[in-house]
Design a binder for these strands. Sequence first.
DNA 1: CGGTACGCCTGAAGGC
DNA 2: TGCCTTCAGGCGTACC
Length: 277
Amino acid sequence: MPELPEVETVRRGLEPHLVGGRITRARTTRPDYVRHDATPRALLQGAEIASVTRLGKQLAIHASDGRVVCLHLGMSGQVLVQPRAQRVKLPTHAHVVWTVGGDAADGVRVVLRDPRRFGGVWTLTDEAALERHWAPLGPDALTCRAKVLTEALSGSRASIKARLLDQGVVAGIGNIYADEALFRARVHPLRPAGALGGAEYTALAGAIRSVLRAAIRRGGSTLRDFVHPDGSAGGFRARHAVYGRAGESCRRCGNPLVSGTIAQRTTVWCSTCQGVT
DNA sequence: CGGTACGCCTGAAGGC
DNA sequence: TGCCTTCAGGCGTACC
């Protein structure tokens, strides 16, 4: 469930605690959750943290010596910043725990928990390895332009909904924001992706950027699993126009929203505002 | 190419 | 109260 706005919210919550600090201890209790090398050193034990970046739904923690740890939260992944006190109990399903010291030593540990384990951690030896790891991803959805959509989708007969979920087209869109963006752009989710008009690609690119920006402003959407690093919930769910609102009335025209399965995902749309297939 | 199905995995929610 | 079923879904993979 964490999509781009949720992952960006995590990134922003993590940054002040990590950047400029040093990882004094890094441990995994579940080595199979960590790809390539699950040793403390690969998990940045002893490293100074230079930055925390994001592409689409993935996070990267960059050490000043060039090593990188990439996090993908899958659907139930949470990154929690907790006080380092002994008496604060680790949550269940805490797969990786980083203890932070150094200049940013405000006594925290960073915990990655992921009950469903659809996510994962990749330990990478340098920036080039991160580039290869991220090579299959399209440009970040926050900067999505009409040109990108036009080029990636021209000739495609798959539904626009299915193509928006493909991280190779544009990175960061999941089921929630695909539906929200299509509603904003007034495009039916079943429209063949390559058959949109120029104005529609422009509208869709704009809708993607605006809905993601609005969601980030609200701290993302909390349905069940997602929380901010401090444990608080995101506030964008109340602003959803379609996702989770099947049968309720369209905020634009008042007609009941309809739902169906498209690209193996529950999809909600307004058959009035989003026209015909 | 694209649609479809499945497996991975747990917990919340609803039905009885 | 408690058990059972269903659903949620990112992503890889197999298959038609």
